[in-house]
Structures are given as structure tokens and as C-alpha cells.
Design a protein around this nucleic acid. Structure first.
Lengths: 247, 247
DNA sequence: CGAAGGATTGACATTTGTCAACACCGGTGG
DNA sequence: CCACCGGTGTTGACAAATGTCAATCCTTCG
């Protein structure tokens, strides 16, 4: 791994580990989400061997910050996060929200430094996956190698869609797309697709969708008037899935 | 590689190869751009062995289209491309422009299908890098493995910046950022940082930056009035780099 | 040389942001 | 228990940025 050439913006030494011994991947309910499906029992054991710790992150705390040295990627085990990129003088943009079963930290591979802040939206737990060891395993297990490529490629595709959203959709369409996207992801993880709890504020949603919090609020109100969703603060119920998709 | 489950939107069978035998990577002037720097002569030979073809693409033609089966990634050898993602009913967004020395096609790894159209902006030539063989090499050559991860991660970071641009900047700032970004990339490839030729139309720039072509045109005019750039059609000369950065 | 696409500019419309007032909600301390 | 507080959310009036439409000019390419 090459040494990073960039001067860290933030102090890099953060006492990493409020870390604990992890339960085995082989016993993890979310395995299907963060591992390739076709791993043999033997191969799974190899993975268990490198994912040896979890870490708890309190609401509002950072899992990592831009400029931190990159050593590991993370799988969200419980809770949720936002990733935030900063610019000089406080320009700030939320690039994504991650819920249980989703990956964090792939942006750091290129420069050996994390490129954004990952902030917990609620008290959360992540699995720590040391990247150097993962690379080593990938050189031996083809399905695992392919899975990492897939994860990274999927992130590229996800970001393409988000660029399309930011570049071509109206505020109304963005909010509708956001709600449907969350719904789909909750459903994929066994939660209700119709009713869920937003862990993020209107401001964070706005910052993700490229609009002001007031605009987000207005769109929620509009959808309520049109009987597309019922929103009660952070609790959202989708009443008309097709209607939302048609917006 | 898993079979793709998605129904292709476009006909998938395109006669791939107006392909020709490639000159050796080891003799390529752009090697530093698309290969890890620290490859030994021996390792380079391994690469030469898999990159065995180039392909010419005429202006306006597609290198690949969304839905095409994914087999290879590409390095732009000469010319330039745009990548375009589509949505139902003609919503269209340019996700990036690629010039000589840059990579194309990494979005296809995840689903085994390309996820966007790659269209040549001028008559161009690419090196074809069969991905399955590249994966195999990466399992043996650690620097090569790491280089692929770096390329994909860099693409993720690039897209994050683009999301920030689309989500938080004014039209004026976006156009300024776009010009500076192009300038930096041309410079990195040995061309003039101050004067260059835009291969894309105002409409394509607008589609990339999330605004209408008229707005792009107005911003160019504004920069000219302010003596930040001199634009003559598609020829751009940057007069005040710092001024542009301050916008 | 002429047609067609691309670029520029102006007038006007629409969307979204800004600012301000106020309601709501959960938690804390009297 | 209640009052109060800060953070969050909602709504309205108005302002600013950007889009839309149309006229015109310029370039390129067959």
C-alpha cells in the first residue's frame, strides 16, 4: 500500500478501538447482504478470521472523518449513518445514507485516506473489515474478489443515479425518489416497505437531495395533500407507491 | 462471473470488433496513467499479454451502451468520450467526460451489464482490457490488484465531488469548476492548462452540470465580461485561474 | 453554397431559496 | 407535574436563480 501524499486536514490519530470481538460472520443474519452468496463453509471460515471486531458508534459521533488514515472498510450491523463531504468554507454535502447491511468506507481505498465523514444517525454498530487482509483473501478466493469489485462498482452505479437525480429532477421528484429508494432498502432488509422511521433530519435530507430543508418540508406537505404519503414527523407511511413513482 | 438477471433494454448483440492488435503497453506513452507505477518489467509483460486489442470508435458512435453485456474495461488511448445514463422517457444525464489516459466501463462490473452509454465525442481509440483476465492477473500481482481498487475508488471519490457540485453550487460555480477541472486534466496529460478545445457541445456540458445549455452559454459570456476566460466557440483560454477558483 | 446544428442573447415564467414567524416535541430541572 | 428550552419542522411572503421560448447569428460539413 503506498503512503498517502496528501496532508491530512484533520488530526489523524484517533483512538480507534472502542472495538469488541465480533460474532462470527457465519452466524450473522445479514451475511447475504455483505458477502457473496456462493461462499463455501470453508471460505466463510477464512472471512470469519479477518472480521474479528465490531465497533459501537454513538449517535452524532464519527466512525471516521475525511483525512483519517484508511485501514478498514465497515459493514453496518445495526443503526444507520450518513456520509458527508466537506469543501473549504463550510460547503457541505451528504453523499449517502447507510442502513444495516450496507458498506461504508470504500472511498478510502484510492488514496489511503478517507474522503468523507461517516456520522452515526443513531447509536450504531459496525463490523470492522481490515482492508489489507481482505485484499489478501481476495487474491485467493475468486468469489470474494469478485464480490469486492461488485460492491465498488455498485457504489459507482448508485452514485451515477444520484447524479442523475441531482442533475435532472425537480425537488418534488427527488423527494419522491428518495422515499421510494428508502422503502426498497428497508424492504430488502425485512422491514416494512410502507411505513418506516426516518433517522435523519429534514436538513440532512435536503443536503442529500440538493435542496433546502424548507423545500423538503413543502414537498412532504404536498405529498400529504395528494394522499401519496402520511408523514407524522419522522414516521413515514407510503400510501400510494405507484403515485409516488409517477411524480 | 454470474449471469446477469436484468432484461437488456437495448439489443445486446453488437458486433464488437473493429478491433486491431494493440501496440504493447510497455511501449505506451500513457502507461503511467492507466497502470500502477511500480510494475516490474516482468509484470508488465503479463499485462501486455491480456491487452491485445484496440478499437476505433467514430465520433458519435457508442463504445458500449447501457444493457450491453460487460466483458471489458477500456482505456482511452486517443480522443474523448462522454458517459450518459438514461431514464425512462428520455431523461438523460451525462455522468462524465473521459479524455486520453482515463478509464471507461468500471460501472459494468457489478451487474455484468454496462450501466450507461459511452459515446465518442470525436474519432477515438481505446485499449480493450478483458475483465476476466484482468481479475486473474490481479489475483497474482498485488500491485495490479491494488491499482484496480484504486481506480474504482477514485471513480467513487470523483462522483462524490460531482454530487457535491450538483447539490451545493450555483450555475456560475459549476461552470468555473468544470473549466478548472478540465484544465488540470489536460495539464496532467502534457497539454496546455490555459488553452484547450472543448469537444462537447454546450448542451452536453449543461447536461453534465445539471443546467440548461442557455445557462452554460450565459456563464461563459459572464466569465468573458469579467476577463476570467476568453472563449471563442469551443476554444477556451483561461485568463485568470485564481479568479475562476474564487467564483 | 446552403442546410442544419450549435451558440448567443433577450423577455418572461417558474422553481427554489431566503427570511421570518410560529408550532411541535422531547427532555430537563424547578 | 409543569414550564421552559433548544432543536426541529411547517408555512407564508417575497427575492433570486434558473428555465423556457423565441429570434438571430455563427460554424461546420456535406
Amino acid at each position: 500500500m503506498r503512503a498517502a501524499r496528501v496532508v491530512p486536514i484533520h488530526p489523524v490519530s484517533r483512538a480507534e478501538p472502542p472495538a469488541r470481538r465480533a460474532p462470527r460472520c457465519s452466524a450473522c443474519a445479514m451475511r447475504a447482504l455483505c458477502m457473496p452468496a456462493e461462499l463455501s463453509a470453508d471460505e466463510l471460515t477464512r472471512l470469519d478470521a479477518i472480521i474479528c471486531a465490531t465497533r459501537s458508534v454513538k449517535r452524532g459521533d464519527a466512525l471516521y472523518r475525511a483525512g483519517d488514515a484508511f485501514h478498514s472498510i465497515y459493514a453496518v450491523r445495526a443503526g444507520s449513518f450518513k456520509t458527508v463531504v466537506m469543501h473549504r468554507e463550510g460547503r457541505e454535502h451528504v453523499t449517502g445514507f447507510q442502513i444495516a447491511g450496507e458498506a461504508l468506507g470504500l472511498d478510502g481505498v484510492g488514496t489511503c485516506q478517507h474522503n468523507c465523514d461517516a456520522i452515526a444517525l443513531e447509536d450504531s454498530v459496525v463490523c470492522i473489515i481490515p482492508f489489507a487482509q481482505l485484499e489478501a483473501v481476495c487474491r485467493e478466493l475468486k468469489p470474494m474478489q469478485h464480490h469486492i469489485y461488485q460492491m465498488m462498482s455498485s457504489e459507482i452505479v448508485r452514485e451515477s443515479s444520484q447524479m442523475m437525480l441531482l442533475g435532472t429532477m425537480t425537488a418534488e421528484q427527488r423527494v419522491a425518489t428518495f422515499l421510494l429508494n428508502l422503502s426498497r432498502r428497508f424492504k430488502a432488509r425485512g422491514f416494512s416497505a410502507a411505513e418506516f422511521h426516518l433517522r435523519m433530519t429534514r436538513e440532512e435530507i435536503g443536503c442529500y437531495l440538493g435542496m433546502k430543508l424548507e423545500t423538503v418540508s413543502r414537498m412532504f406537505s404536498k405529498f400529504q395533500r395528494e394522499r401519496l404519503v402520511a408523514a407524522n414527523g419522522k414516521t413515514i407511511r407510503i400510501l400510494d407507491h405507484e403515485g409516488l413513482a409517477r411524480v
